[in-house]
Amino acid sequence: MSEIKALVEAVAKMKLDDVRTAWRERFGEPPPLRSTDLMRRALADRLQLEGSSHPLDKRLAQLAARHRTGSKPTVVAHSFKTGSLLQREWQGERHQVEVVDGGYVWKGQSYKSLSAIARDITGARWNGPRFFGLREG
């Protein structure tokens, strides 16, 4: 596997703070984006365009070596007990979601997913668990 390909694969597994740090170390400027996915893509793109000759590349290569090719990531599913409450403040307003059998209740309305609630709160498509702070990102 080429060195650049290994670096790109390492970037794909990095957490947001690690991607931001890598960006600052590599390019000497603050990262231009806030989304983990977009930051990973931008960093991987710039690594591929510029080639490999930076001290950070060694660290990324070591990170890549720790991950076995072909191993599948573990998906963590969140399950909450009925009656649990999830809270999030959005634009100065506190939103509280109750976990019920088969879904969630927000402002007296039933929902099948947290993503649908997050979309109604923000007016934009969100990953529900991420919006409510249950997933990294």
Rank of each mutant, 00 (worst) to 15 (best):
L114R: 13
L134Q: 13
H95Y: 02
R68P: 03
E29Q: 13
R26P: 01
T82S: 10
R40E: 11
K107Q: 15
D120V: 11
K5W: 01
Q48N: 07
G102T: 03
R94D: 10
M39F: 00
W126Q: 13
V75W: 06
V97Y: 04
A44L: 04
G51E: 08
G83L: 00
F131D: 11
F80C: 05
Y111A: 03
G128P: 05
L134F: 04
Q48F: 01
G137Q: 14
Q87E: 15
F27M: 05
K5F: 01
P55V: 01
L114F: 04
K58G: 04
L7D: 08
R88I: 08
L63Y: 07
K107D: 13
Q87H: 05
K58M: 04
P55E: 14
V97Q: 07
F80T: 13
G28Q: 11
R34H: 06
F132W: 09
S115T: 14
K58R: 14
P30M: 08
S52E: 08
S52A: 15
P31Y: 04
P129D: 11
P30D: 15
F131L: 06
A64L: 05
E50H: 07
M39L: 15
S115H: 03
R24C: 01
G123M: 07
P73L: 09
W126R: 14
Q96Y: 00
S79A: 13
R34K: 12
D18L: 04
M14L: 15
D101A: 12
E3M: 02
Y104M: 03
T69F: 02
L85P: 00
T82K: 12
G103E: 12
P30F: 04
I4E: 10
A61W: 06
L49V: 13
G28I: 09
